[in-house]
């Protein structure tokens, strides 16, 4: 079955096992390296989402004009340590967000004096449209744009609206995917305040 060419088989069997050619080693290593980097990249991309019970990733925001927190134009999440934070991701082009804006504003007014911080982050939005949206609903709680979509990437949001409830120690207590309602807010916020 096997056709043979006279020159090959016998000499090879007699000769000692030759070392592996360096170019083949390099090739295999290259592929292994590629697979390794890919695997690392895929794991890294999926491991990042902050879950309930984990520390909320810190970030810096530049507030919209007129929507500052504590009268400062720039602030970090870590500056708000010691207070419960309601971190709400939204956008002016998001239809579902319209269901929760009034609820958020009213709850903010209710708990504002207790020291709760409501922070609205506009995700992938156009500034004039964001401002117009906020004026339309007459919101007053602090708002900032998510510049470079860095914050939404850190929190790995799956869409808007999405709200993260962070307690006084900076730990995530609840993640709400979709619009929030009054009942949810009235349950979680007093809980976080009481601790």
């Amino acid at each position: 079955m096997t056709d043979t060419i006279p020159t090959t088989t016998t000499p090879v069997e007699a000769a000692p096992r030759r070392p592996i050619r360096w170019s083949m080693i390099a090739l295999w290593l290259a592929v292994i390296a590629i697979l390794a980097v890919l695997a690392w990249g895929l794991l890294n991309a999926t491991a990042g989402r902050p879950e309930v019970g984990q520390a909320a990733p810190d970030f810096t925001v530049e507030f919209f004009n007129g929507y500052e927190w504590d009268a400062r134009p720039v602030a970090d999440l870590s500056d708000m340590r010691g207070r419960p934070v309601v971190l709400n991701f939204w956008a002016s082009w998001c239809v579902e967000c319209r269901y929760e804006t009034d609820v958020l504003e009213q709850t903010w007014l209710k708990y504002r004096d207790d020291g709760v911080v409501f922070l609205g982050v506009a995700y992938a939005d156009v500034e004039p449209n964001s401002i117009a949206y906020m004026k339309e609903f007459g919101v007053t709680f602090p708002h900032a744009p998510d510049l470079g979509t860095d914050i939404s990437q850190d929190y790995e949001i799956t869409g808007v609206p999405e709200t993260f409830f962070i307690d006084k120690d900076g730990v995530i207590r609840h993640v709400q995917i979709g619009a929030v309602d009054e009942q949810l807010l009235d349950t979680i916020i007093p809980q976080m305040l009481a601790e």
Binding site: A91, W93, A124, V126
Partner: peptide, 20 residues
């Protein structure tokens, strides 16, 4: 498009893209 998957802005049909 910042929110859709691998869609250039000139062909993206969503409302957000229209804004952009």
């Amino acid at each position: 498009c910042p929110v859709c998957e691998s869609t250039p802005l000139d062909v993206c049909p969503t409302a957000a893209c229209a804004d952009w």
